[in-house]
Nucleic acid binder design. Sequence first.
DNA 1: CTGTTAGCGCATTCAC
DNA 2: GTGAATGCGCTAACAG
Lengths: 349, 349
Amino acid sequence: MRTTIKDIAEYTGFSVTTISLVLNGKGTKIPEKTKQIIFKAVEDLDYRPNQIAVGLVKKRTNTIGLIISDIRNVFFSNLAKGIEDECRRNGWNLVLCNTNDMHERDMAYIRVLADKGVDGILYAMSIDSDHEKAMESLTLMDSIKIPYIMIDRTFRQKCCHYVVTDHEVGGYLATKHLTDLGHRRIACVTGPLHLDDSKFRLDGYRRALEEASIPYDPALIYEGDYTVEGGREGINKLLSETFTAVFAFNDMSAYGVYNVLKANGYNIPDDISLVGYDNIFFSELLDTPLTTIHQPIYEVGIEATKRLIEMNEKKPIDKLERVIEPYLVVRKSTSAVKLEKTEANESVK
Amino acid sequence: MRTTIKDIAEYTGFSVTTISLVLNGKGTKIPEKTKQIIFKAVEDLDYRPNQIAVGLVKKRTNTIGLIISDIRNVFFSNLAKGIEDECRRNGWNLVLCNTNDMHERDMAYIRVLADKGVDGILYAMSIDSDHEKAMESLTLMDSIKIPYIMIDRTFRQKCCHYVVTDHEVGGYLATKHLTDLGHRRIACVTGPLHLDDSKFRLDGYRRALEEASIPYDPALIYEGDYTVEGGREGINKLLSETFTAVFAFNDMSAYGVYNVLKANGYNIPDDISLVGYDNIFFSELLDTPLTTIHQPIYEVGIEATKRLIEMNEKKPIDKLERVIEPYLVVRKSTSAVKLEKTEANESVK
DNA sequence: CTGTTAGCGCATTCAC
DNA sequence: GTGAATGCGCTAACAG
């Protein structure tokens, strides 16, 4: 049996209260001698407070719940690492919940986390959350009265705390890099466009286009799903159009584009430039290292965790709207557009 | 305030006991009518038992602790996904702990998990655990009296439950594939050799060599650390030797080898064949898709979780020694050795 | 300065 | 069939 506070009370002869007091640093007026004895006993009996009991009375578990779609997604595992690192620094713990992008699981996990008494939830909404579903899960979140912060994905129709990267700027940066290189026909493999992040990246894309006086052509836009397979399908569809560059809305779909392009004999970047989004560490390992937008997602995890813990310390919680800036990482998959395309390509071979 | 069992007792007029009884399916002798009323009240008041209170009295939390080095490692995130999936199916939860391969963190997390009252621990020991440290953490694990299973990495000097893949067979398979292709000089970039898994893969390598009557040459062995950087360093050192194939003990270091080899103008597989280990999803996305050993690590997660949950259900826990077989995945990074190497290479160019 | 008394929310004997 | 009493291990008034 685990030693309890009672055991060390008997062992020392002091009452349970005294023990609790000194162990929680509230024994201001307890003689040094008594403390010594108690600490020694704690040492001798290897006593550690049962956190379940502590949690029951304090209504605090020092635990955060993380709801994401799939930890195997490198993007999310980076996020999770940031969160867990910050948790550890503060003596907190992390409960991991994968929803596989199913809204019902969002709902189920929110309830479970509430039942377990977590002190906060970090929430990356399921990809299948349309307006109604998003509303439903956020209403549930509000009803359980546990602080929560939305990460990565937002849902602006409802006011809530969030820590995100600036997807509009990211989309802009990626596209501007391409227009700066002279590209005027830029295809897009987006993510699901009912998601704010995808929507914003597309906004950024359009802004960069406008600045370069390039008309927006819907025929160049393929709505993907952030997967390698989606990237493959997208570029296959897109290949009937003419373009000199592709902007994939995440690195995973960029890999799909990359594969199909190379398989079809295209040279990257000589024939077609490619820029991704996320800066997954694999991207620099490709034979043609991928130019991409770096999202400081690890930092998002840290920041969100810090704030969530803060919310548990002090009362005043003003609206948290933290936007972290992404930046462009130029590697080998993009180059200036060839003025006389066909000829240029020939000369390369 | 959250509704408690007391609330629904008052609401229905029945006692707390009765509520508890029917909600836990132990009200065999309670009239259907009463049950109906209670269930209705639960519905009306949206009552859900506080799991902290339940945990305190039942001494069960239905929670598993997972100790790994770094969730960003694709290998571990696959493992974690398997674990969490199986947890969810059983109504359990997962607490994630990253140790960054630091033994002291293993120790700290083991204690924390015990304090939180998890019902089981899945433990992948820190990479820096030498004999003494391994002994220390396993002794601690034993002392806290919580069921635990070692995953991926074992420590055979001490008897404990484990679920692993067969590293010896994996090493054998990888090497045999190479010897079958005619390679006789096969370089190795291993993992830390004080780890059982690396040690066993090397054993497998030697067995395949013996079978092919190839002498073991220590000069071809570089002890790496399972990182991309380690792979780079390893191959740079090894390049002074002659060999026609490289066996990297995990895909990450294979990427390092791959990069350096290509950067130095070697063609894979024409000049040098390369086989990795792990079958990370990224390996098939390389320009030269990597031949590698697939470790069913997701399945390891599921299996380990199942057994850990079982240990909480029934008493009889016999020694668990589950070994899951890996298999070879042949892709494009390996080919038959060229008989007249130099000449053959020239003709390719 | 320290001990007594009450719960936290729930499950579980044991009576009625 | 149902309820009152007890306690899980701990913290926190409140006394003294």
